[in-house]
Design a protein around this nucleic acid. Structure first.
Lengths: 187, 187
DNA sequence: AGCTTTGTAGACTGATTAGTCGATTTACTA
DNA sequence: TAGTAAATCGACTAATCAGTCTACAAAGCT
Protein backbone atom coordinates (compact mmCIF):
# COMPACT_ATOMS: atom_id res chain seq x y z
CA UNK A 1 0.00 0.00 0.00
CA UNK A 2 1.15 3.51 -0.84
CA UNK A 3 -1.45 4.92 1.50
CA UNK A 4 0.57 4.44 4.68
CA UNK A 5 3.58 5.96 3.02
CA UNK A 6 1.57 9.08 2.26
CA UNK A 7 0.23 9.19 5.81
CA UNK A 8 3.79 9.08 7.12
CA UNK A 9 4.87 11.95 4.87
CA UNK A 10 1.91 14.07 5.90
CA UNK A 11 2.41 13.42 9.59
CA UNK A 12 6.11 14.20 9.26
CA UNK A 13 5.38 17.48 7.48
CA UNK A 14 3.07 18.68 10.21
CA UNK A 15 5.38 17.69 13.02
CA UNK A 16 8.46 19.12 11.33
CA UNK A 17 6.97 22.57 10.86
CA UNK A 18 5.79 22.76 14.45
CA UNK A 19 8.74 21.09 16.18
CA UNK A 20 11.67 21.08 13.78
CA UNK A 21 13.50 18.12 12.29
CA UNK A 22 15.49 16.89 15.21
CA UNK A 23 12.87 17.61 17.82
CA UNK A 24 10.52 15.26 16.01
CA UNK A 25 11.15 11.61 16.93
CA UNK A 26 10.40 8.93 14.38
CA UNK A 27 8.21 7.24 16.98
CA UNK A 28 5.99 10.29 17.09
CA UNK A 29 5.79 10.48 13.31
CA UNK A 30 4.72 6.85 13.17
CA UNK A 31 2.26 7.35 15.98
CA UNK A 32 0.70 10.42 14.35
CA UNK A 33 0.49 8.62 11.03
CA UNK A 34 -1.16 5.68 12.73
CA UNK A 35 1.49 3.14 11.78
CA UNK A 36 4.23 1.19 13.53
CA UNK A 37 7.84 2.35 13.56
CA UNK A 38 8.77 -0.74 11.61
CA UNK A 39 6.48 0.41 8.82
CA UNK A 40 8.10 3.83 8.75
CA UNK A 41 11.56 2.32 8.38
CA UNK A 42 10.30 -0.07 5.76
CA UNK A 43 9.30 2.86 3.52
CA UNK A 44 12.26 5.09 4.39
CA UNK A 45 15.61 3.56 5.20
CA UNK A 46 16.55 6.40 7.53
CA UNK A 47 15.03 9.50 9.02
CA UNK A 48 17.20 11.58 6.76
CA UNK A 49 15.83 9.83 3.71
CA UNK A 50 12.34 10.68 4.90
CA UNK A 51 13.23 14.34 5.24
CA UNK A 52 14.90 14.50 1.86
CA UNK A 53 11.98 12.75 0.21
CA UNK A 54 9.61 15.23 1.75
CA UNK A 55 11.78 18.08 0.52
CA UNK A 56 12.09 16.82 -3.02
CA UNK A 57 8.39 16.04 -3.36
CA UNK A 58 7.50 19.44 -1.95
CA UNK A 59 9.83 21.09 -4.41
CA UNK A 60 8.39 19.16 -7.33
CA UNK A 61 4.90 20.41 -6.55
CA UNK A 62 6.23 23.93 -6.06
CA UNK A 63 8.06 24.03 -9.38
CA UNK A 64 5.06 22.68 -11.20
CA UNK A 65 2.80 25.26 -9.57
CA UNK A 66 5.20 28.09 -10.42
CA UNK A 67 5.31 27.28 -14.11
CA UNK A 68 1.58 26.80 -14.48
CA UNK A 69 -0.01 28.83 -17.28
CA UNK A 70 3.17 30.79 -17.87
CA UNK A 71 3.24 29.67 -21.52
CA UNK A 72 -0.13 31.24 -22.13
CA UNK A 73 1.20 34.70 -21.40
CA UNK A 74 2.44 36.73 -24.35
CA UNK A 75 4.89 39.20 -22.84
CA UNK A 76 7.85 38.70 -20.55
CA UNK A 77 6.18 40.89 -17.98
CA UNK A 78 3.02 38.84 -18.26
CA UNK A 79 4.98 35.64 -17.74
CA UNK A 80 6.84 36.98 -14.73
CA UNK A 81 3.55 38.26 -13.38
CA UNK A 82 2.09 34.80 -13.75
CA UNK A 83 5.04 33.31 -11.85
CA UNK A 84 4.50 35.88 -9.11
CA UNK A 85 0.86 35.06 -8.59
CA UNK A 86 1.54 31.35 -8.89
CA UNK A 87 4.05 31.67 -6.07
CA UNK A 88 1.62 33.57 -3.87
CA UNK A 89 -1.13 31.08 -4.60
CA UNK A 90 1.08 28.12 -3.77
CA UNK A 91 2.14 29.59 -0.44
CA UNK A 92 -1.43 30.41 0.48
CA UNK A 93 -2.75 27.01 -0.50
CA UNK A 94 0.10 25.00 1.01
CA UNK A 95 1.15 26.96 4.09
CA UNK A 96 2.73 23.95 5.77
CA UNK A 97 4.76 23.04 2.71
CA UNK A 98 5.81 26.67 2.42
CA UNK A 99 6.96 26.72 6.01
CA UNK A 100 8.75 23.42 5.62
CA UNK A 101 10.52 24.65 2.50
CA UNK A 102 11.73 27.83 4.21
CA UNK A 103 12.86 25.90 7.23
CA UNK A 104 14.70 23.32 5.20
CA UNK A 105 16.30 25.88 2.90
CA UNK A 106 17.75 27.75 5.86
CA UNK A 107 18.85 24.71 7.82
CA UNK A 108 22.26 23.06 7.63
CA UNK A 109 20.50 20.02 6.19
CA UNK A 110 20.50 21.66 2.80
CA UNK A 111 24.27 21.58 2.59
CA UNK A 112 24.26 17.82 2.89
CA UNK A 113 21.91 17.41 -0.01
CA UNK A 114 21.88 18.81 -3.52
CA UNK A 115 22.07 22.57 -3.19
CA UNK A 116 23.16 23.24 -6.74
CA UNK A 117 20.26 21.15 -7.96
CA UNK A 118 18.02 23.80 -6.50
CA UNK A 119 18.80 26.40 -9.08
CA UNK A 120 18.62 23.98 -11.97
CA UNK A 121 14.97 23.36 -11.24
CA UNK A 122 14.23 27.07 -11.44
CA UNK A 123 15.92 27.25 -14.81
CA UNK A 124 12.84 28.51 -16.60
CA UNK A 125 12.79 31.60 -14.40
CA UNK A 126 16.44 32.24 -15.20
CA UNK A 127 15.56 31.95 -18.86
CA UNK A 128 12.77 34.50 -18.47
CA UNK A 129 15.10 36.91 -16.71
CA UNK A 130 17.74 36.50 -19.41
CA UNK A 131 15.23 37.15 -22.16
CA UNK A 132 14.00 40.22 -20.31
CA UNK A 133 17.53 41.54 -20.05
CA UNK A 134 18.17 41.02 -23.76
CA UNK A 135 15.07 43.07 -24.52
CA UNK A 136 16.36 45.84 -22.24
CA UNK A 137 13.31 45.47 -20.03
CA UNK A 138 15.11 44.28 -16.91
CA UNK A 139 18.08 45.60 -14.99
CA UNK A 140 21.42 44.70 -16.65
CA UNK A 141 23.01 43.14 -13.59
CA UNK A 142 24.26 39.63 -12.81
CA UNK A 143 21.33 37.32 -13.31
CA UNK A 144 21.99 35.48 -10.06
CA UNK A 145 21.71 38.76 -8.20
CA UNK A 146 18.45 39.59 -9.91
CA UNK A 147 17.12 36.13 -9.14
CA UNK A 148 18.06 36.19 -5.47
CA UNK A 149 16.64 39.69 -5.07
CA UNK A 150 13.17 38.89 -6.42
CA UNK A 151 13.15 35.57 -4.64
CA UNK A 152 13.78 37.56 -1.47
CA UNK A 153 11.15 40.15 -2.26
CA UNK A 154 8.68 37.38 -2.90
CA UNK A 155 9.55 35.72 0.40
CA UNK A 156 8.91 38.98 2.20
CA UNK A 157 5.57 39.51 0.51
CA UNK A 158 4.56 35.96 1.29
CA UNK A 159 5.50 36.38 4.93
CA UNK A 160 3.38 39.53 5.07
CA UNK A 161 0.37 37.76 3.57
CA UNK A 162 0.74 34.87 6.00
CA UNK A 163 0.67 37.33 8.89
CA UNK A 164 -2.29 39.27 7.44
CA UNK A 165 -4.63 36.63 6.01
CA UNK A 166 -7.36 39.19 5.37
CA UNK A 167 -5.16 40.76 2.67
CA UNK A 168 -5.00 37.56 0.66
CA UNK A 169 -8.26 38.39 -1.10
CA UNK A 170 -7.49 42.12 -1.35
CA UNK A 171 -6.93 42.57 -5.09
CA UNK A 172 -5.57 46.06 -4.69
CA UNK A 173 -3.06 44.98 -2.10
CA UNK A 174 -1.91 42.11 -4.29
CA UNK A 175 -1.40 44.53 -7.18
CA UNK A 176 0.70 46.77 -4.95
CA UNK A 177 2.71 43.75 -3.98
CA UNK A 178 3.26 42.87 -7.60
CA UNK A 179 4.45 46.43 -8.20
CA UNK A 180 7.12 45.90 -5.54
CA UNK A 181 8.25 42.78 -7.32
CA UNK A 182 8.20 44.32 -10.78
CA UNK A 183 9.98 47.52 -9.75
CA UNK A 184 12.77 45.39 -8.35
CA UNK A 185 13.17 43.79 -11.76
CA UNK A 186 12.57 46.45 -14.33
CA UNK A 187 15.54 48.44 -15.69
CA UNK B 1 34.86 34.66 34.91
CA UNK B 2 32.91 35.86 31.93
CA UNK B 3 35.50 34.47 29.61
CA UNK B 4 34.27 30.89 29.71
CA UNK B 5 30.75 32.10 29.14
CA UNK B 6 31.89 33.82 25.97
CA UNK B 7 33.78 30.74 24.84
CA UNK B 8 30.63 28.70 25.26
CA UNK B 9 28.57 31.13 23.19
CA UNK B 10 31.15 31.19 20.43
CA UNK B 11 31.47 27.42 20.31
CA UNK B 12 27.68 27.07 20.26
CA UNK B 13 27.38 29.54 17.40
CA UNK B 14 29.86 27.66 15.24
CA UNK B 15 28.33 24.29 15.95
CA UNK B 16 24.77 25.49 15.48
CA UNK B 17 25.40 26.92 12.02
CA UNK B 18 27.13 23.78 10.84
CA UNK B 19 24.97 21.16 12.56
CA UNK B 20 21.72 22.79 13.60
CA UNK B 21 20.34 23.30 17.08
CA UNK B 22 19.20 19.83 17.94
CA UNK B 23 22.03 18.03 16.21
CA UNK B 24 24.45 19.85 18.48
CA UNK B 25 24.78 18.15 21.90
CA UNK B 26 25.61 20.26 24.89
CA UNK B 27 28.55 17.96 25.59
CA UNK B 28 30.04 18.89 22.24
CA UNK B 29 29.51 22.58 22.88
CA UNK B 30 31.27 22.29 26.21
CA UNK B 31 34.05 20.22 24.70
CA UNK B 32 34.59 22.68 21.84
CA UNK B 33 34.57 25.58 24.28
CA UNK B 34 37.09 23.74 26.44
CA UNK B 35 34.91 23.62 29.53
CA UNK B 36 33.00 20.99 31.48
CA UNK B 37 29.29 20.42 30.95
CA UNK B 38 28.70 21.50 34.50
CA UNK B 39 30.15 24.89 33.63
CA UNK B 40 27.88 25.22 30.66
CA UNK B 41 24.81 24.56 32.76
CA UNK B 42 26.07 26.89 35.43
CA UNK B 43 25.98 29.80 32.97
CA UNK B 44 22.82 28.73 31.14
CA UNK B 45 20.08 26.92 33.00
CA UNK B 46 18.98 25.01 29.90
CA UNK B 47 20.09 24.48 26.34
CA UNK B 48 17.14 26.57 25.22
CA UNK B 49 18.29 29.46 27.35
CA UNK B 50 21.68 29.24 25.69
CA UNK B 51 20.12 29.39 22.24
CA UNK B 52 17.89 32.30 23.14
CA UNK B 53 20.75 34.20 24.70
CA UNK B 54 22.79 33.71 21.57
CA UNK B 55 19.90 34.96 19.48
CA UNK B 56 19.25 38.04 21.56
CA UNK B 57 22.91 39.00 21.77
CA UNK B 58 23.30 38.51 18.04
CA UNK B 59 20.29 40.68 17.42
CA UNK B 60 21.59 43.41 19.70
CA UNK B 61 24.81 43.66 17.74
CA UNK B 62 22.87 43.58 14.48
CA UNK B 63 20.51 46.38 15.47
CA UNK B 64 23.37 48.49 16.67
CA UNK B 65 25.26 47.95 13.43
CA UNK B 66 22.20 48.78 11.34
CA UNK B 67 21.62 52.13 12.98
CA UNK B 68 25.24 53.22 12.89
CA UNK B 69 25.85 56.65 11.32
CA UNK B 70 22.25 56.88 10.13
CA UNK B 71 21.79 60.13 12.05
CA UNK B 72 24.59 61.74 10.09
CA UNK B 73 22.67 61.42 6.85
CA UNK B 74 20.51 64.36 5.80
CA UNK B 75 17.87 62.85 3.54
CA UNK B 76 15.55 59.90 4.01
CA UNK B 77 17.12 58.23 1.03
CA UNK B 78 20.54 58.81 2.51
CA UNK B 79 19.46 57.27 5.79
CA UNK B 80 17.94 54.22 4.13
CA UNK B 81 21.03 53.91 2.01
CA UNK B 82 23.12 53.90 5.16
CA UNK B 83 20.96 51.16 6.65
CA UNK B 84 21.38 49.15 3.46
CA UNK B 85 25.16 49.29 3.49
CA UNK B 86 25.26 48.73 7.23
CA UNK B 87 23.28 45.54 6.72
CA UNK B 88 25.58 44.33 3.97
CA UNK B 89 28.63 45.15 6.03
CA UNK B 90 27.30 43.31 9.06
CA UNK B 91 26.55 40.17 7.08
CA UNK B 92 29.97 40.23 5.45
CA UNK B 93 31.78 40.80 8.73
CA UNK B 94 29.74 38.34 10.78
CA UNK B 95 28.84 35.54 8.37
CA UNK B 96 28.26 33.02 11.14
CA UNK B 97 25.96 35.31 13.06
CA UNK B 98 24.13 36.06 9.83
CA UNK B 99 23.67 32.36 9.15
CA UNK B 100 22.56 31.72 12.70
CA UNK B 101 20.08 34.55 12.56
CA UNK B 102 18.53 33.24 9.32
CA UNK B 103 18.40 29.74 10.68
CA UNK B 104 16.81 30.79 13.92
CA UNK B 105 14.31 33.12 12.27
CA UNK B 106 13.05 30.32 10.06
CA UNK B 107 12.99 27.66 12.74
CA UNK B 108 10.04 26.77 14.97
CA UNK B 109 12.11 27.99 17.88
CA UNK B 110 11.15 31.55 17.08
CA UNK B 111 7.52 30.94 17.92
CA UNK B 112 8.39 29.95 21.44
CA UNK B 113 10.26 33.14 22.10
CA UNK B 114 9.40 36.79 21.56
CA UNK B 115 8.47 37.13 17.91
CA UNK B 116 6.69 40.46 18.32
CA UNK B 117 9.74 41.80 20.10
CA UNK B 118 11.56 41.38 16.83
CA UNK B 119 9.76 44.19 15.08
CA UNK B 120 9.96 46.52 18.02
CA UNK B 121 13.72 46.51 17.81
CA UNK B 122 13.57 47.57 14.17
CA UNK B 123 11.32 50.46 15.08
CA UNK B 124 13.69 53.10 13.73
CA UNK B 125 13.45 51.58 10.26
CA UNK B 126 9.66 51.66 10.48
CA UNK B 127 9.93 55.32 11.44
CA UNK B 128 12.12 56.03 8.43
CA UNK B 129 9.66 54.29 6.13
CA UNK B 130 6.74 56.21 7.61
CA UNK B 131 8.52 59.53 7.17
CA UNK B 132 9.34 58.62 3.59
CA UNK B 133 5.72 57.83 2.89
CA UNK B 134 4.57 61.13 4.35
CA UNK B 135 6.95 62.94 2.02
CA UNK B 136 5.51 60.98 -0.92
CA UNK B 137 8.90 59.48 -1.59
CA UNK B 138 7.99 55.87 -0.88
CA UNK B 139 5.17 53.64 -2.05
CA UNK B 140 1.88 54.32 -0.21
CA UNK B 141 1.24 50.74 0.86
CA UNK B 142 0.94 49.05 4.26
CA UNK B 143 4.18 49.72 6.04
CA UNK B 144 4.53 46.12 7.18
CA UNK B 145 4.40 45.02 3.57
CA UNK B 146 7.05 47.54 2.60
CA UNK B 147 9.22 46.43 5.49
CA UNK B 148 8.97 42.73 4.75
CA UNK B 149 9.62 43.33 1.07
CA UNK B 150 12.87 45.23 1.52
CA UNK B 151 13.94 42.90 4.28
CA UNK B 152 13.46 40.10 1.75
CA UNK B 153 15.28 41.95 -1.01
CA UNK B 154 18.15 42.56 1.35
CA UNK B 155 18.25 38.90 2.34
CA UNK B 156 18.45 37.93 -1.31
CA UNK B 157 21.25 40.39 -2.02
CA UNK B 158 23.14 39.18 1.02
CA UNK B 159 22.79 35.58 -0.05
CA UNK B 160 24.16 36.51 -3.46
CA UNK B 161 27.16 38.26 -1.97
CA UNK B 162 27.88 35.31 0.30
CA UNK B 163 27.91 33.03 -2.74
CA UNK B 164 30.06 35.42 -4.78
CA UNK B 165 32.65 36.81 -2.35
CA UNK B 166 34.59 38.51 -5.11
CA UNK B 167 31.67 40.92 -5.59
CA UNK B 168 31.86 42.19 -2.05
CA UNK B 169 34.48 44.75 -3.03
CA UNK B 170 32.90 45.53 -6.39
CA UNK B 171 31.59 49.07 -5.86
CA UNK B 172 29.59 49.07 -9.04
CA UNK B 173 27.87 45.83 -8.17
CA UNK B 174 27.01 47.12 -4.72
CA UNK B 175 25.49 50.25 -6.28
CA UNK B 176 23.38 48.09 -8.58
CA UNK B 177 22.28 46.12 -5.55
CA UNK B 178 21.31 49.29 -3.78
CA UNK B 179 19.28 50.30 -6.83
CA UNK B 180 17.30 47.05 -6.47
CA UNK B 181 16.59 47.91 -2.88
CA UNK B 182 15.70 51.50 -3.55
CA UNK B 183 13.46 50.77 -6.52
CA UNK B 184 11.50 48.41 -4.33
CA UNK B 185 10.87 51.26 -1.93
CA UNK B 186 10.40 54.37 -3.98
CA UNK B 187 6.88 55.38 -5.07
C1' DA C 1 -3.29 -24.40 -3.99
C1' DG C 2 1.78 -23.60 -3.06
C1' DC C 3 5.49 -20.13 -3.08
C1' DT C 4 7.67 -15.71 -3.00
C1' DT C 5 7.63 -10.88 -2.28
C1' DT C 6 6.05 -6.95 -0.03
C1' DG C 7 3.82 -4.55 3.78
C1' DT C 8 2.86 -4.18 8.66
C1' DA C 9 3.43 -4.63 13.40
C1' DG C 10 5.60 -3.55 17.93
C1' DA C 11 8.80 -5.06 21.45
C1' DC C 12 13.55 -4.39 21.95
C1' DT C 13 18.50 -2.39 21.96
C1' DG C 14 22.68 0.20 21.96
C1' DA C 15 23.85 4.73 21.73
C1' DT C 16 23.15 9.37 22.88
C1' DT C 17 21.19 13.24 25.29
C1' DA C 18 19.99 17.11 28.58
C1' DG C 19 20.63 18.02 32.88
C1' DT C 20 22.27 16.80 38.09
C1' DC C 21 25.31 16.43 42.00
C1' DG C 22 28.87 16.72 45.13
C1' DA C 23 33.69 17.84 45.30
C1' DT C 24 37.21 21.25 44.43
C1' DT C 25 39.11 25.64 43.13
C1' DT C 26 39.09 30.52 42.41
C1' DA C 27 37.57 35.26 43.41
C1' DC C 28 35.70 38.53 46.60
C1' DT C 29 34.93 40.77 51.02
C1' DA C 30 35.62 42.20 55.65
C1' DT D 1 43.68 36.06 57.02
C1' DA D 2 39.37 33.82 57.53
C1' DG D 3 35.08 33.05 55.57
C1' DT D 4 31.72 33.19 51.96
C1' DA D 5 30.02 33.12 47.29
C1' DA D 6 30.66 32.11 42.57
C1' DA D 7 32.87 29.27 39.13
C1' DT D 8 34.57 24.94 37.46
C1' DC D 9 34.88 20.19 37.01
C1' DG D 10 33.48 15.54 35.26
C1' DA D 11 31.32 11.30 36.57
C1' DC D 12 26.69 9.99 36.67
C1' DT D 13 21.55 9.26 35.57
C1' DA D 14 17.11 8.89 33.76
C1' DA D 15 15.02 9.53 29.60
C1' DT D 16 14.83 9.38 24.80
C1' DC D 17 16.08 8.27 20.21
C1' DA D 18 17.07 6.01 15.56
C1' DG D 19 17.04 1.91 13.86
C1' DT D 20 16.73 -3.66 14.30
C1' DC D 21 14.62 -8.02 14.62
C1' DT D 22 11.27 -11.44 14.42
C1' DA D 23 6.78 -12.69 13.42
C1' DC D 24 2.77 -12.50 10.82
C1' DA D 25 -0.47 -11.06 7.13
C1' DA D 26 -1.61 -9.67 2.23
C1' DA D 27 -0.89 -9.78 -2.42
C1' DG D 28 0.91 -11.49 -6.67
C1' DC D 29 2.46 -15.17 -9.47
C1' DT D 30 2.65 -19.99 -11.67
Amino acid sequence: MNEKRQQILEAALKLFVTNGFHATPTTKIAQTAGVATGTLFHHFKTKEELINTLYLETKDVLIQSLSSQVDQQETIKGKLRQVFFNAIRWAVNHPEHQQFYDQFSNSPFISNITRELGHQRFQFIYDLLKQGQENDMLKPIPIDLLFEAIQGTLNGITKYLMDHPDKITDEQCLESAFALYWDTLKG
